[in-house]
Design a protein around this nucleic acid. Structure first.
Lengths: 254, 254
DNA sequence: GCTGTATTGCGTACGTTATACACAGTGAGG
DNA sequence: CCTCACTGTGTATAACGTACGCAATACAGC
């Protein structure tokens, strides 16, 4: 071990460190008028009210009665603020699980919980992920997912892979659902109308000889009405959990 | 049927329509100096060379020796250009499949093909999806995925759900892989170094009593080295296909 | 051939964004 | 009291997307 005591290796951006530890109050100078927490809260309020596009540094600052540049004393760049917004918005997992809950029930509860968090705050899905950010709540969700897998006999390296697979699915399906609700249905009087309009567009564009299988789906009326979003989510979730179950059974066999 | 002959209902943005049909040459006025195709190609070249952030309307125009505003004769907004860039970048699926290919081999080939397309052009993953855009190649990939499911006995409405599930997974895993390669490894001398640094950061931040299962994973050294990205992709893909297989068997049983 | 008109490419202008930088006020440590 | 780390603020900059109007172009109808 030749690394020095400070471990500057493993330093995160100051604001993310602050989200974990709570920064100690500065020893000198005027008392801070703002708080990282309050800034993040204000930014979330803006996003919830007017969408993510409305979240600009100046708007958030105005909302707090501060100047734009004041925020940069707490956050090095807007990206950090967005990262912290995501962390605060998803919150901690519900965690009310019976101790004898099976892995499948546990992961299912986990997935539905995350799905609902996204559904409550669709703007979270509009924030592009740049890297796996180790923020407190993100890590808490990971821990909770791993916990459900504790008695499966999976290898340690398989557990985070499963959780990652699932979290990716939840994010994806939630995004799709939000897209449909937002940009899609807005243009039509009803969800069913929007879907059948989409269906007709596809029918018009696709040559039956080049797209026979798509045409079969369309002509079966699959896209003619909007079914309940929960059904779509449940479908994919069941497929994935079925797949995990195969692996769990395989590992249990030894 | 009370809809008028024009079917303005199902009209897409003009540039997307053009991508399908090829616009007919204008009857009057000066000969167009640009082409939608050439614009998209130039934009892709910029993205490939300097990343998606470098793709601005002025940069693309400069690259073609045209003025910024000239592009707006072919594209109503930057979003449309981005949509067309994605479509052109993913291209058409390879399609060289033997007629007796099983559904699982077919979907596997499909997923790996899409994965490789993303890997070749990681900037595609940085473009936020706003809605399922019916562009020619996107639809071609959908058709190809549905084709693999033609003999599974799945219900028509289940087939697109499976393809959607899979395409979401591919996109997600590819994004993760790109993130790791881009923002993560850049800061470290080697991939292994970056991973072990990340692992140490997590160890420092997480209290063993609050995050026991994560600690177990970390202490097993799972995050200490970067394994081949293909392995991670294969793992998730196998889980999903296993899950689909369960459904296919169930449907075949009747 | 002439004229009308649809359509092109272009230049200018506007509003908005993130953020670099310099500066003045603040308040505890010495 | 002085020092100086630390705060909030105002100004300035470069870049962005795009609305708008104008001049040049070339076919349709005469």
């Amino acid at each position: 071990m030749t690394s020095n005591g400070d471990e500057p290796d493993s330093r995160l951006p100051a604001s993310i460190e602050a989200a974990w530890g709570g920064r100690e109050a500065p020893r000198r100078g005027p008392r801070p008028a703002l708080t990282l927490e309050r800034i993040v809260k204000a930014a979330i309020a803006v996003a919830a009210a007017d969408g993510l596009a409305a979240v600009s540094m100046s708007r958030v600052a105005r909302e707090m009665g501060a100047s734009t540049m004041a925020l940069y004393r707490y956050v090095a760049a807007k990206d950090e603020l967005l990262t912290l917004m995501v962390d605060a918005a998803i919150g901690a997992p519900a965690g009310a699980s019976e101790p004898d809950e099976g892995w499948r029930d546990g992961l299912s509860r986990w997935a539905w919980g995350l799905h609902e968090a996204y559904r409550r705050q669709p703007w979270v899905l509009r924030i592009p992920i740049t890297a796996p950010p180790p923020t407190p709540n993100q890590v808490a969700w990971l821990e909770d997912g791993l916990r459900s897998l504790r008695n499966t006999g999976l290898a340690e390296h398989e557990k985070p892979s499963v959780v990652l697979l699932l979290s990716g699915y939840v994010r994806n399906d939630s995004t799709l659902e939000a897209d449909l609700a937002e940009g899609f249905m807005a243009a039509a009087p009803s969800p069913d109308d929007a879907m059948s309009r989409y269906s007709r567009t596809l029918l018009r564009l696709t040559d039956p000889e080049r797209f026979p299988h798509l045409r079969a789906v369309l002509e079966a009326g699959v896209f003619d009405h909007a079914d309940h979003p929960d059904d779509e989510f449940r479908f994919g979730l069941d497929r994935i959990l079925d797949g995990v179950a195969v692996l769990v059974r395989e590992r249990a066999r030894r």
